[in-house]
Design a protein around this nucleic acid. Structure first.
Lengths: 234, 234
DNA sequence: GATAACATTTAATCATGGCTAAAACAAAGG
DNA sequence: CCTTTGTTTTAGCCATGATTAAATGTTATC
């Protein structure tokens, strides 16, 4: 019982702590090196603030940190990250599915709620949703035990022409863009085919549920799809 | 546009601000004089902290305050109080009714959530519940416009023997006590009759839905009832 | 009306989590 | 190898919201 400081302290973590830990986890899971500036940038704080907090997290045994080195989570840190992420994604799904909030609004709302819900509420939400595994953007919801389903898929921008795909994940949280996608009917599980690809990473012509639309390349790069017939039909 | 500071600042109020304002409102509505110490006591902070915050709230035009005098809300202050209270009570009802959290837990949960839900979420919750007017404890839910239904009723401790009453409100938020009441089946709208009253403010023998129980005097004093036939049957 | 008892306010401090400016360090190019 | 460029850290500061201890004001009692 000597080195388990972080576990001892239990739920003394503030929203700020959780935000940093979540950011480290998310950056890492996008295969980005977690540098001080990347972290500061992701959280919209100054680099100095990031250093400051990272040091505190290191004291709590939640991150591994040596000055001037890149940052990583410890096992307890990752446990915290997954817990927060579970809250976040359960909330997103709940708000969208049960309370009918538009999907471009649920992220911001969950961002605040994730820090204050109790274990009991987390469980109740999960139960009400039937212990779901993905949120409205197709992001996987960590299980209570901290397991994360790896959602497969390739970027639509890299897909083959004239093949039917299923949209499985939207790597975007920006409200404007999500509203735009929503207007096109681009939600997870929708059928989408690539009709034509403009050169030089130009726009892509796609068929969404019968309708034709042009889609900017970088948008398409943030849409993960799998071949339609590789997936179980609902 | 000179004196409307509080309105100008809009949603820059912190959870601490809201807690103080809510406390002032609740103390006042229990006909207690809102003194500095009552406030400090209610919020579990030191008197010095209360003075400090009250001065800030006065600067924001949310409370009326002169040193050494008792404290009251301004019109904008009351508007804030009602908004927070609306959040709180909507959340309590939602958590209890839709997510099936035990009624003794919803207060603590709502206490945290009330400060972070958006207008849109508030509306969605209210809509999902059919724009309800009372929470699970029988406390009135302020309307969007800031109207509060006054819930009538007299303390059960002052009720007449051998008359059928309807429990309309439980003036208690303590988890232990609520759990106890719950175990007795004492929720709002339950039928209750006073069978016998012990002298010297002693326990009361009551009939709750056919079962007989003894109830401490101070408990009964926190239960508001109305004559069964004065109320609309469901 | 003086004084005791109590409530309130002031003053000085602390922890948190930001910030800016300056110093220290790392990595790359000449 | 040294210097330039960019990143990271340190140092000093600020606002928030709490604390305790001391000073001040209010009220009740004799």
């Amino acid at each position: 019982m000597a080195k388990t400081k972080a576990l001892d302290k239990g739920k003394t973590l503030t929203a700020a702590h959780e935000d940093y830990i979540k950011a480290i986890y998310l950056l890492r899971s996008q295969d980005e090196e977690v540098t001080n500036s990347a972290l500061a940038n992701h959280l919209n704080v100054s680099p100095a603030s990031a250093t400051n907090m990272v040091k505190k997290l290191a004291d709590l045994n939640l991150v591994e940190y040596e000055p001037y080195q890149s940052i990583s989570l410890t096992v307890s840190g990752e446990r915290v990250a997954l817990e927060v992420l579970r809250h976040h994604r359960l909330l997103e799904l709940y708000l969208h599915q049960e309370l009918k909030l538009p999907w471009d609004q649920v992220h911001a709302e969950a961002e605040r709620l994730e820090h204050v819900i109790s274990e009991a509420l987390e469980d109740a939400i999960s139960l009400a949703l039937g212990n779901p595994l993905v949120d409205p953007h197709g992001d996987p919801i960590p299980t209570k035990k901290g397991m994360v389903e790896s959602v497969g898929g390739q970027p639509l921008s890299a897909a083959r022409v004239h093949r039917k795909y299923r949209l499985v994940r939207v790597l975007m949280q920006d409200e404007e863009r999500l509203r735009y996608l929503g207007a096109l009917g681009l939600y997870p599980n929708v059928a989408i085919s690539l009709l034509e690809r403009a050169p030089f990473d130009g726009p892509l012509l796609v068929d969404i549920d019968g309708e034709h639309h042009a889609l900017a390349y970088d948008m398409a790069a943030s849409l993960l799809v799998v071949a339609w017939d590789e997936t179980i039909e609902e």
